[in-house]
Design a protein around this nucleic acid. Structure first.
Lengths: 248, 248
DNA sequence: ATATAGATCTCGTCA
DNA sequence: TGACGAGGTCTATAT
């Protein structure tokens, strides 16, 4: 594709508020929170409708370069060498990407209509909901008082007390709990002890598993681990359907 | 685009090892580590050459759904309703996406040649390199012994001692240090004290800034903060070039 | 494989 | 706006 065609297509697509996607050969210099250089290769570049910029290599899940919305772009021509490139700039001007493009293979754009948000289940928030609604999985006499609460002690997943009046802080982890989860819990317990002047405060890690180092630290600090599996909400679709085609 | 055309194009592209990108209208059900549902809307779907799957909405930086490489796909036809959809499955079978597609607007594919890796500067590792090579920014008598070392005390960014023999652990943060950075440092210092039986162990947060809560906690634990800016390696390109075109 | 921690993290949320 | 923590985090590295 000729460079002028490319410019014309991008401008037209932009004016219509379309998402733009193109394959090209380019070299990329990024300067902002970090700095990077990537020499010439084929990449997929996407400019979303909110002017998010994504640059993807042919493999891997993460973009190799990106700019948060809204990014701006302008074409620049190096006066001496006549190398065209695109200068992309982040909103604040703190981030910028020089994308030197030597070939544009294809450019496709379309206005995508989609204002929907995903309904996600299985988060840590739902796990703390579940514990609040099933306090018996923590202990027979556990009485939850609050959940997902931002306190001056920190963001506490579940908070309550046991029959003998001991305050109990629960830190939920959806996966194997590690050292950082234990230090986080310990911080909450300590802070509540010192600020309330109460000694009868304890903490529990609620997670499906815990690493051995974390378990050791937990014991050192007289904290507890209770195995809790994160709840699931949706049921999988019936897989017994007629197969049409199968590939890769 | 007709459904059979879509299947044929995907199969052909797959056989040639191409990256596939298409706009479509679809509804997505995900089940795996979490579960989600997203009703019908227009999206950009990318199948990379290593069979990474990415599904993007028209706005936002993150894919709304994805599968890590290598994902597999097959077309399914619901027997009663004759709704075609694609069943995408993660490698282990633990993750799966049902993508019910009612329209395919465009499909583009190309073999992208790019085996290069990005040269990235400004990481925390480079910051610890810098401190090791410029120990005077910590103190006049600081002598670094190791850097980025995985020890039984933890992963310590920079470790050394001062003139009077006090052991010093440095935790680097590229941006404003927060509570978690302080608890992390505190954990290393405590562990080294207890395992070595030495009291003369102290810790330093090296970062461009620190939050007030973190600073308070740091003082409580007799730890220190030293302002250090992360080093930069690349110089920005000269921006004074001739402008060709500018858009959005 | 598991554990640990960084990331141009991103994203939401609350004070 | 800054601070704080979760994330289907992902990715790299060491044990």
């Amino acid at each position: 594709m000729k460079f002028q065609d490319f410019i014309d297509k991008v401008k037209l697509a932009q004016s219509k508020g379309e998402l733009i996607s193109f394959f090209c050969k380019c070299a990329i210099t990024y300067s902002g929170r970090a700095e990077s250089y990537l020499d010439f290769g084929d990449r997929l570049i996407i400019i979303k409708q909110d002017k998010t910029l994504l640059i993807h290599q042919p493999d891997g899940g993460m973009p190799i370069n990106y700019l948060k919305a809204p990014a701006s772009a302008e074409f620049i021509l190096d006066e001496t060498q006549e190398k065209p490139f695109i200068l992309l700039e982040g909103r604040s001007g703190a981030d910028e990407i020089d994308c030197e493009i030597t070939k544009v293979y294809d450019l496709y754009s379309r206005k995508l209509i989609d204002g929907l948000k995903q309904d996600l289940a299985g988060s840590e928030a739902e796990m703390s909901d579940y514990i609040r609604d099933h306090p018996e999985i923590i202990s027979k006499d556990f009485i939850p008082l609050s959940r997902e609460e931002h306190t001056k002690y920190g963001f506490i997943d579940v908070f309550g007390h046991t029959g003998d009046g001991t305050l109990l802080i629960i830190e939920c982890k959806r996966y194997t709990a590690g050292l950082s989860g234990v230090t986080q819990l310990r911080r909450y317990v300590e802070k509540m002890k010192s600020l309330k002047g109460i000694k009868a405060v304890t903490g529990v890690i609620a997670a499906p598993a815990i690493t051995s180092n974390a378990m050791e630290m937990l014991k050192d600090w007289k904290l507890d681990f209770i195995r809790v599996d994160p709840p699931k909400r949706f049921v999988r679709k019936n897989k017994r359907q007629k197969k049409i085609e199968s590939f890769f």
